Amino acid sequence: MSVSHGFNATATARPAPRVAVVTGASSGIGRSTAIQIARRGTGVILTSHGNQAGGRETVSMIEKDGGTAVALPLDVGCSADFPAFRDSVAAALRETWQRESFDFLVNNAGFGQMAMFEDTTEQMFDELVRVLLKGPYFLTQTLLPLLADGGAVINTTSNAARFSGLEAGYSAYGKMKGGLVVLTRYLAKELSARGIRVNSVSPGATRTRIADDAFARHPEVIPPIAARTALGRLGEPEDIGLAIAALLGEEGRWITAQDIEVSGGYNL
């Protein structure tokens, strides 16, 4: 008896690949996260703003490893653009993965800026709010209809919002990152009905291009940071990217509403 083609197609069909959206992936932690996620077989929609060439380079790195990625422009400080970005994500999902939804969202895009409390201006404060707090809040809200049930969200925060990373000059920056930690807990509670896990990762001092590539311009600050770190070195983007990828994977399936510091034991 012959077997129908329909039965064969059903029996051999493979599940649709998982897809992640990673903001701010043109370099540093975002790039490492996108690469680590892709190495686990997940497609990546990554964003960049001021460094779109870097975003394309991240795509090339993922493709060289055999993965699939799409780069889209996004300014997380401009929430008026979010509906158009959602449409671009939906189009990329259909065209590249033949999907109507994605599985993981990593709110990573941001910038660092320091000023002593008495020198912090309203302009600086408002810009930090737009990019570090308002942006992730309303971007997640805008993309939520496309986020699949059983998915996961990771917010990149900072140990500047924890006692371990408390340093003079980061009152505004730390406040925004602390607000993102609180948002993480509320999203974990509200989205649990859909099986969506929400966590945050708080990096310590990490070698990225943050603050205008400060570590490259001022290498003399690295030894004191390493001396205050239990594991004896400065963090690397891969350290954070691996942690985020693990939280999104099966290893993190029973973890939600947590803020996990990834700092090598800074100020331990």
Rank of each mutant, 00 (worst) to 15 (best):
L191G: 06
V198T: 00
L234I: 15
I244E: 00
L146V: 09
A245L: 02
A227W: 04
F85T: 05
T58M: 06
D213P: 02
G150R: 04
R94C: 04
P224I: 04
G249N: 05
H5R: 12
G55P: 07
G195P: 06
L105A: 08
E261V: 15
S158W: 05
T229E: 00
D213R: 11
S48V: 09
S263R: 00
H5L: 13
Q113H: 11
T96S: 11
V76S: 02
L105F: 08
T256A: 10
G179W: 06
F82L: 14
G232I: 07
P223K: 11
G67M: 05
L191V: 06
G241N: 01
I37A: 07
R18Q: 15
G241A: 09
K64D: 13
Y137Q: 10
V198R: 01
A161C: 14
A211T: 11
F102S: 07
A91K: 12
T33D: 12
R40H: 10
S192Y: 06
S192G: 14
R207H: 15
F102L: 02
A11D: 02
P145Q: 02
V106W: 00
K189T: 09
A69S: 11
H5A: 14
F7V: 14
D239Q: 02
Y137L: 13
L268Q: 09
D81F: 04
D65G: 15
A214V: 14
P83C: 10
S164H: 08
F117M: 10
Y173D: 03
L128K: 02
I37P: 01
M176C: 11
S2K: 12
N159M: 15
G110H: 04
M1G: 13
D126I: 08
A216F: 01
I222V: 14
